[in-house]
Design a protein around this nucleic acid. Structure first.
Lengths: 185, 185
DNA sequence: CAAGACCTATCTATCATTAGAAAGGCAAAT
DNA sequence: ATTTGCCTTTCTAATGATAGATAGGTCTTG
């Protein structure tokens, strides 16, 4: 049976993302992924020869999907404050709806043990998020210095990642709202 | 040769902590730990029969050591503001000096895949930290409501864990200072 | 028929875990 | 003081399960 399942690659990426957000890079195996998708592990290797390849693909897809949901930070039809609220809502959804940490947060916590390519893709997630936030802040507070803008952008993403982490550690997603309530003021 | 090495258990715990902070629970093996300590993996099992046992011991030891470094939050000879600065410094040291994430932050990010005992010990770390912060805040701002005190305590630890995570993701420890600079005001 | 997707089958390495033996320390019994 | 025996620690050796990865075949589609 060699049906070229239209979405096998997508299924693999989606399943891997889910599992890696639960167990980290080292807590996921080709066999588990294959079983979820309904194929054999050799078939996963056909699409992603090495685990590093798979990790990079999953991380990049996650980043792309995340940024796509945010949209253009310079879109003149949306106010900076709305965009920042959207940003928080995006993280909130990842935690409350998916019941899972941010993939790139999980990977960041085990970064020094990741294959090079995965570590690089993970870093790109943070850099792109910071760039998006800086763009919004440039519109919101044009007089803020670039240095302070960068610091504020980092502070926002750090607070959100931290809120997810602690909510996860406490096993209580309500903690996220408690933490992020005072993010902007 | 059956020399009862005085500190074998301590060495195992220390080595495991170091490795788990780099690679997470699933990224660590009995063999690696044994090799670091200079014994065989069977000997590690003698002290910690299962990986869950080892994980619990390491997490509890980390928590105890962490809280010990903080000291009594109600010590009248130390001002609340000093204690909060000490708290930040404690996290900073973990990141900058050890060049590693907080152990319990790493474990929190893969919590849903942890053995029950480890997940429980990890949660205890956060609860005890929050209790310590609440105690300090009770002295610093006696008129603050218990609910707000809790929220503020969670916000503090979340910001610190998030700052570590993002600093790790960016591969730049300076990010930690940038993020935590405006923690109190 | 050529290419892509998936398979069976297998490899080697590593995983956590266990059984059983050797070796040394310690203390009661001699 | 020496012997006896237990306790702890560590070892060798092996278990079955699982890891990532590969070779080569089969089927389907274009």
């Amino acid at each position: 049976m060699a049906k070229q399942q239209e979405g096998t690659v997508d299924k693999i990426i989606k399943t891997t993302q889910k599992r890696m957000r639960e167990a980290g890079f080292h807590g996921v195996s080709f066999r588990d992924i294959a079983a979820d998708v309904g194929i054999k592990s050799a078939s996963v290797h056909h699409h992603f020869p090495t685990k590093e390849d798979l990790g990079v693909a999953v991380t990049d897809a996650y980043t792309e999907q995340f940024l796509e949901a945010l949209g253009d930070p310079d879109d003149p039809t949306r106010k900076p404050d709305e965009l920042l609220k959207l940003y928080v809502a995006n993280f909130r959804r990842a935690l409350v709806k998916d019941k899972r940490m941010c993939l790139c947060g999980v990977l960041a916590s085990e970064k020094s043990s990741l294959p090079n390519g995965v570590a690089k893709s993970d870093q790109a997630f943070f850099e792109k998020n910071i760039a998006w936030l800086e763009a919004v802040l440039r519109r919101k507070s044009p007089r803020m210095s670039p240095k302070n803008r960068y610091a504020e952008a980092v502070r926002i993403i750090a607070t959100l990642e931290g809120a997810m982490l602690v909510a996860s550690g406490l096993g209580d997603t309500a903690t996220f709202d408690l933490t992020t309530a005072t993010l902007f003021k």
